[in-house]
Amino acid sequence: MQSLLEVKDLTVSYTTPAGKILAVDRVSFQLEAGRSLGLVGESGSGKSTIGTAILGLLADNARVETGAIVFEGHNLLEADQETLRRLRWKKISMIFQAAMNALNPIMPVGDQIVEAIRVHEPEVPLTAARQRVADLFRQVGIPARRLRDYPHQYSGGMRQRAIIAMALACNPRVIIADEPTTALDVIVQDRILKTIIRLQDRFDIGILLISHDISVTAEVCHQIGVMYAGQLVEIGTKEEILTTPAHPYTRALLEAHITLSNDRQPAPVPGPAADLHRLPEGCRFHGRCRRPDANCRRQTPSWHSLSATHKVLCREAESNGN
């Protein structure tokens, strides 16, 4: 069966004053309709770059080096700008972090959603578009009378809901959710995640959830991919990742989360974050790994399948994988 969205061997580089770096290094994964995949990793691991690459909105200094992004059978990296523009939001939309300035501050929130509908479905009359936005607002739990309000009149949680409503406006096939609950308090965060799960079931959408918090992905996603220093290091079903994590980094992430589970702020994994300008030889994680051996410093690890759905990029898996 063909996947809804398939990222194959994607490599993205950034040109910085200090030189060229690979923010995303040969990452591959698949996303099925109605399923969700969580990408976890610390900042700088390349997870957000993947999201922007899928939408074709990489920064000016970024370049896709190799790979393919196949959506419904078409490679998006080969599509022209106009095709991509028509595809954005209509087919693939995005949930931004509400703490960001993602909504235009001087335009009523409702209008910003109506605008998206009218660009992609010009045949929809204005009143019908407004009606649709009011329905969406009800589904995410915002009173319809707040359509005319401006973003600054919303609370953080409401802004996040409005952004979710906006992402759903054109009935997309895929939603990329980039840190959808970061900077919200725990209760609001919980409600937002539940809303996402509920809506996904109803609309049969594929969700790519990007987060630095493994517990968020665990709550929402069927599948979890862990990223480190631009590489995907482990991917598997939620159960596999949570119960039998194979990569030391995944384990560290889970432990860090458990230690501080009270306020739900994940503790950072010990050790300095990877510097993409000076990546070590061999396994990129060996400097922070708890049980590295001499070979980790020299040999680049390769993929090992632990089950049909679970694979890991670590030498350790070789020794105890069988």
Partner: peptide, 19 residues
């Protein structure tokens, strides 16, 4: 960020610029 949002929404360039 909201300019990025507008791009992600697939708005034509002149709409992003003017609105």
């Amino acid at each position: 960020d909201y300019i990025f949002t507008a791009r992600a929404k697939g708005l034509p360039e002149n709409v992003i610029r003017d609105r």
